[in-house]
Computed example of a mutant assay.
Amino acid sequence: MSRPVWAAVLARWEEPDWLPSTDNLPAEWWASRLVSSQCDLATAIVLVWWMLWKHRNAIVFDGASPDVARVLRSIVVDGSLWRSGGLFKG
């Protein structure tokens, strides 16, 4: 479920080569992409993970069906809220 979401997000960011392999742990992948000057990138990565986590919980606890399009819409909607709240600096 998370791989197609990340593929779509990374395509939008024009970084399709960043798609982690199935062998990568999320923390390893994340650490390999970040440098200290990229606050917005770190925030964006957290946003995607947060939306994936919320969707996973909806599947497990509320009986929702896996839906990549729904997660992508949530990323856009919540990303706008995060931006208006000042979480993105650029």
Rank of each mutant, 00 (worst) to 15 (best):
S37K: 01
P4V: 09
L25F: 05
R73Y: 03
G86M: 03
N24Q: 14
P16K: 10
V5Q: 01
D40G: 02
C39V: 15
W30V: 14
G79R: 12
Q38M: 07
S65R: 13
N57V: 13
G85R: 07
G85Q: 06
A31Y: 00
S65N: 11
T22P: 03
V68Y: 00
L47M: 07
L10C: 15
E14R: 15
M51H: 05
W53D: 14
L47E: 01
V60D: 07
L10D: 13
E28W: 01
S21H: 06
E28F: 04
R12L: 06
L34S: 01
V46P: 08
G90Y: 00
L41G: 00
W13I: 14
D67K: 09
V48L: 13
I59F: 07
P20A: 10
E15A: 15
G90P: 00
S32M: 10
A44D: 01
I59G: 05
P26M: 05
T43E: 12
M1T: 01
L47Q: 04
P26D: 04
A11V: 07
L87C: 07
R12S: 12
L72A: 05
W29P: 00
V48T: 09
L72F: 02
R73H: 08
W18K: 10
P4G: 08
T43M: 12
H55W: 01
R83V: 12
T22M: 05
S2W: 03
D23Q: 15
A58H: 09
M1L: 11
W50S: 13
G63F: 02
S74K: 08
S2K: 11
A27E: 12
L72G: 00
A31P: 03
R33T: 06
W50G: 06
A8P: 09
S80F: 11
V77S: 12
S74N: 14
V76Q: 03
A42L: 02
M1Q: 05
N57G: 06
P16I: 15
P26L: 01
V48S: 10
